[in-house]
Amino acid sequence: MKAPMLSRLFRWVSLLVLVAFLAACAGTPTAAPTQPPTTGGESGPLADLVAAAKKEGMLTTIALPHDWCNYGEAIETFKSKYGIQVNELNPDASSAEEIEAIKANKESKGPQAPDVIDVGYAFGPQLVDEQLAMPYKVSTWDTIPENLKHPDGYWYGDYYGVMAFEVNKDVVKNVPQDWADLLKPEYKNQVALAGDPRLSAQAQMSVYAAALANGGSLDNVQPGLEYFKKLNEVGNFVPVIAKQSTIAKGETPVVFRWDYNALADKKALEGNPEIEVVIPQSGVIAGVYIQAISAYAPHPNAAKLWMEFLYSDEGQLIWLKGGCHPIRFDDMLKRNVIPADLLAELPPAELYAKAVFPTIEQLNAAKTYIAENWDKVVGAEVK
């Protein structure tokens, strides 16, 4: 569904509400770095970083599909801007697999060792507890909400969205509007997840959202597992990890997916097939992803430069073009640096009014519970 135009004032007020909510959980403020945001023509410390990164000559990423948050443009812009090669590992890896890639390559400086990762919010403490991340504060550090970054710079939020239904309208004639609809016989063999719920943050958040829509809470995800058990028992659940290709072919015509991923598919497919993106009437959950540099990064300077690029205005706008709300959105809005056409393409702010943001502790508890109980409650192997 095409997002209707909204006034800048309405978006501003809505965003203030969101920021006020996030600020309520804020911790002790961190000291600001001295280097200002940059978009080119770097000097001083950042120029030294650019030189060191160019000397390394390569950055290794993992789990960055080009249609996820417009990462394709981000990667190509970074390569062009700095002349650094980007080695892309397993674009479809889950958050858990990204972390395992760091662990498996601790002693390696070869091409299978990732420099940087982009994982679900709940994985932040694990990175610190297991000493898998390298601390680094980007020059725009002060404009990242306090409660969405580790105080010592081990990880920091990058973007957020809400869980939505991505629907292939060429296959699905009655577009579902809420979770209960998907239990109807007309959706037999049509409903899928975009990942393995034992490993994937996106899939786990789908279960979490289903819990909220079916009598659960941020502290009780069991109803979400029961929902998927029922979905499987009535024959509506397809145990296939859904991708743009499976959606387009009609193999997984209804998918639980972050709104920005669904919107990216809609744009990429250009009506063939026609995609509708539905934010459900209940169980609207927001999800934040985070960036981190591997503690064992083979190219640590290139990794730091990648972070500087992503958290600059330029990098944040690239994410916004992909339908993601960049973590520095509020700061950029206040400085009037977001083009009006990008604001107009976002889903209307009122659709986000019911969204809830779990704390990192709630996410960790939910993640563990879902991973440990999916097999015994739902009994469907998603692959």
Rank of each mutant, 00 (worst) to 15 (best):
K266E: 14
V255L: 08
F237D: 01
R257W: 03
G235K: 06
Y208H: 03
N232Y: 06
K229W: 00
T246D: 05
E270M: 12
A213T: 12
D259W: 13
A264Y: 03
A264F: 08
D219W: 10
N214A: 11
V238K: 08
V207D: 03
V207K: 02
L231R: 01
K230T: 15
F228S: 11
V240N: 10
E233M: 08
L231P: 04
N261L: 00
V255G: 04
Q244W: 00
E233C: 07
I241S: 12
L263A: 11
Q222R: 05
K230F: 02
A242L: 03
T252L: 07
K243G: 11
Y260N: 07
P253H: 06
V207E: 01
F256E: 00
F228D: 09
E233Y: 10
T252Y: 02
W258M: 14
E251I: 09
K267P: 00
V255P: 02
G250M: 09
V254R: 01
S217C: 10
N220W: 13
I241V: 14
V221G: 02
M205Y: 06
R257I: 04
K267L: 14
F237M: 13
D259A: 12
G250P: 06
V240M: 10
G235E: 09
V254H: 01
Y208G: 05
Q244S: 12
G235Q: 08
P239V: 14
F237P: 03
A213Y: 10
A268R: 11
N232V: 07
S245K: 13
A262M: 02
V255Q: 10
W258S: 03
S245C: 13
K243M: 03
N236L: 04
Q222E: 12
V255H: 00
A242N: 06
I247H: 03
K243E: 14
W258Y: 07
V240H: 11
K266G: 15
E233V: 04
D219F: 09
N232W: 05
Y227L: 01
P223N: 15
V255E: 06
V234W: 14
P223A: 15
E270R: 04
W258Q: 04
P239R: 11
A210C: 13
L269V: 12
S245D: 15
L218Q: 08
T246E: 11
G216Q: 10
A210E: 03
E233I: 02
K249W: 12
I241M: 13
A209E: 10
K229S: 07
L263K: 03
G215A: 12
D265E: 13
I247E: 08
G235D: 11
G216S: 09
L225D: 00
A242P: 02
D265Q: 08
V234T: 14
A242I: 00
V254K: 03
V234P: 00
N261V: 10
P239C: 15
G250Q: 12
N236E: 13
K249Q: 15
W258V: 05
K266P: 06
K249C: 06
V238M: 01
F256H: 02
